[in-house]
């Protein structure tokens, strides 16, 4: 049953997934096992997205499915949720003056299903907030998102703020989104430009050293 549950979720069969979730809860199964299966389902969704089989609508819908499953399972958890092993820490956010988050959230999703512990600072994030988050989390990787051309300068200023705080050398910085490209990467003095969320995952893997 777990295997077909994983597949039903990966295939985005809403009714079947919810029905089966209820059945598994009612039969007294360990809620953590259901969540673990959901995670596996989401991993497949992420893989299909990376392979170009799924697109943004499937990501959005799978996220909604997961939310529903989690809401059903949560009341039955004893409280001691075991921490899922994470591949490493990544901080991401959209730079100051830019409130776009569609791309940012895709990167969040893809890093998450690939096992990273993601701190998503949201949109219009000032440079000092990035600095603080990098200090607090000690994450080795920072992802800067931006959609518009004013983000060029905001990215540059964010990188400079990390330099000024003396932590630039501990952090690998990737940029992406909208009008970003390798020219902007050079301009902002970031370490890499990624053209999509899959690039963000492989950069994070490369830098943190996971396969």
């Amino acid at each position: 049953m777990p295997e077909s549950y994983v597949n039903l979720l990966a295939d985005l069969k809403e009714d079947e997934v919810l029905k089966l979730t209820k059945k598994r809860i009612d039969s007294g199964e360990d809620p953590m096992k259901i969540l673990e299966d959901s995670r596996k389902g989401m991993e497949i969704v992420g893989k299909r997205f990376a392979d170009g089989e799924y697109f943004l609508p499937e990501l959005v819908f799978s996220g909604e499915l997961l939310k529903q499953v989690t809401a059903m399972v949560k009341p039955h958890m004893s409280g001691k949720a075991t921490q899922v092993k994470k591949a490493g820490k990544v901080v991401i956010g959209t730079v100051a003056g830019d409130i776009h988050d569609i791309g940012l959230n895709i990167v969040d999703f893809m890093l998450d299903v690939n096992g990273f512990d993601v701190t998503n600072l949201g949109v219009d994030v000032p440079a000092d907030k990035f600095v603080k988050a990098m200090k607090d989390t000690k994450a080795p990787v920072l992802g800067l998102s931006g959609f518009l051309t004013p983000a060029f300068d905001a990215m540059k200023e964010t990188v400079e703020a990390l330099e000024k705080a003396g932590i630039r050398k501990n952090v690998k910085i990737m940029i992406g989104g909208g009008q970003m490209d390798d020219e902007v990467r050079k301009y902002a003095k970031a370490d890499a430009f990624g053209k999509d969320a899959m690039a963000a995952v492989s950069l994070a893997k490369k830098w943190i050293g996971v396969n």
Binding site: A96, G97, D98, I99, H100, D101, I102, D124, L148, T149, P150
Partner: peptide, 19 residues
């Protein structure tokens, strides 16, 4: 929408839609 001085810092150079 947010625009400079109204939801975005005054020196932001664009206005942006709030989805």
């Amino acid at each position: 929408y947010k625009w400079p001085g109204h939801g975005l810092s005054t020196n932001t150079l664009s206005y942006q839609a709030v989805e």
